[in-house]
């Protein structure tokens, strides 16, 4: 902050424009995430898991719930990976021998 500095100002840097642009991008992105993962999603996942488990033994990692938003249309994608046949039979008959 010298004497000369205050008389001959530094050329404008316009870094504020860059800040604004970066903020607009990150804020829009983060708002999108908030909207795309409503509060009920974890509960929905848990309850779905319980229903499927009544029939097929699966664990938490084998169910994927994803909500997408395109052109004002929401798509709920549900992906359940069923266990291999052998594994399932083994789990169904824990006391029995090989099928």
């Amino acid at each position: 902050m010298g004497l000369l500095d205050s008389i001959f100002r530094a050329p404008p840097s316009k870094s504020a424009a860059l800040a604004k642009e970066r903020l607009q991008i990150i804020v829009t992105h983060e708002r999108g995430n908030r909207r795309n993962s409503p509060d009920y999603l974890p509960t929905l996942k848990k309850e779905l898991l319980e229903v499927v488990r009544k029939y097929v033994p699966i664990d938490q990692s084998q169910i994927k719930v994803h909500l997408d938003r395109e052109d004002g249309c929401e798509v709920l994608e549900l992906n359940i990976t069923l266990p291999e046949e052998e594994q399932r039979l083994a789990q169904q008959r824990p006391n029995g021998g090989e099928a």
Partner: peptide
């Protein structure tokens, strides 16, 4: 803000 070194009132309001 006038110099373009700081986000202006309007910039922040817009965001």
């Amino acid at each position: 803000a006038d110099r373009g070194d700081m986000l202006s009132v309007n910039d922040v309001l817009e965001i």
